[in-house]
Design a protein around this nucleic acid. Structure first.
Length: 254
DNA sequence: ATGGGCACCTGGCTGC
DNA sequence: TGCAGCCAGGTGCCCA
């Protein structure tokens, strides 16, 4: 894609998480791809005149297909390049999004408040310890807040807390230094391990190659309510926090 | 400023 | 077999 020029853009469905703005096609036409970056779960495609900010939501995917390939259901937009390839966005649940910005993308409202990259040195025990001070919210909800921690969704939140042996109900400010250290470590470990083997496939979801993610086999507690904890054999428990299921082992986690 | 709840959407699954 | 209803996910936004 790099250094390829946009020949044409076709939008079949503007109603993504936010509507695709009307001037998008005109803005991007004739632009050349200069770089591709990522910030949290946002994909940034940089052009001379602006930057495309994409999010795949939970069911979105991007593929390169040959020009002329007929679209399938839920193929919401195409960006046709001068190479004869089309960047095609597919997203059955339309939780994904597309924004076009002609300013510094880091200053975009969706990006400017985001916490440090979890796999970077800036995200560490000291950061987590300081950030949790004076916060009464449950630690599970805290690590799912993108202003505090980025990259941790519902699955990895339960998994990271299990690995750190911290109860999901614990008030964030009650974390000790030692626990903050363990949790920062487990967040990095869980994310890195999941990325390495293709993420976590739930139910019908597959990755960009159409293959499932194999991290599901490595889950300690997520979706294992009633099953034996893989460490202590006591029953994994489930309850709801902020309208999301939390899974944990009340014996291993305190 | 913080915390809590709601919204978006569709496919898979359950239960009648 | 058909169909209605529930549930799951990520995360921004609104309100108290």
């Amino acid at each position: 894609m790099l250094e390829r020029r946009v020949v044409e853009t076709i939008v079949r469905e503007r109603r993504l998480r936010w509507p695709i703005v009307a001037h998008f096609e005109a803005a991007i036409r004739g632009q050349t791809v200069r770089g591709i970056d990522r910030r949290a779960k946002y994909i940034l495609i940089r052009f001379d005149a602006g930057t495309l900010i994409l999010h795949l939501g939970m069911s979105g995917s991007l593929r390169l297909v040959k020009h002329g390939t007929p679209p399938n259901a839920h193929d919401h937009w195409d960006i046709q390049l001068d190479s004869g390839w089309i960047l095609r966005f597919h997203d059955p649940r339309r939780f994904g999004s597309l924004h076009w910005t002609e300013s510094d993308p880091a200053a975009h409202p969706l990006l400017k408040q985001l916490a440090p990259e979890p796999l970077s040195d800036a995200f560490n025990a000291e950061y987590l310890y300081r950030a949790t001070r004076k916060r009464s919210v449950a630690i599970k909800q805290f690590i799912m807040n993108s202003q505090q921690v980025v990259g941790v969704g519902n699955i990895y939140a339960s998994e990271a807390l299990f690995r750190a042996r911290v109860s999901p109900r614990r008030a964030a400010r009650r974390l000790t230094r030692k626990e903050a250290n363990a949790l920062a470590r487990s967040i990095k470990d869980v994310l890195a391990a999941a990325i390495k083997i293709g993420g976590t496939t739930l139910r019908d979801y597959v990755n960009a190659d159409g293959a499932p993610g194999y991290f599901r086999q490595k889950l300690f507690v997520y979706e294992r309510a009633g099953a034996a904890c893989r460490v202590c054999r006591s029953a994994v428990k489930q309850f709801v926090q902020g309208q999301r299921s939390t899974y944990w082992c009340s014996n291993c986690q305190r």
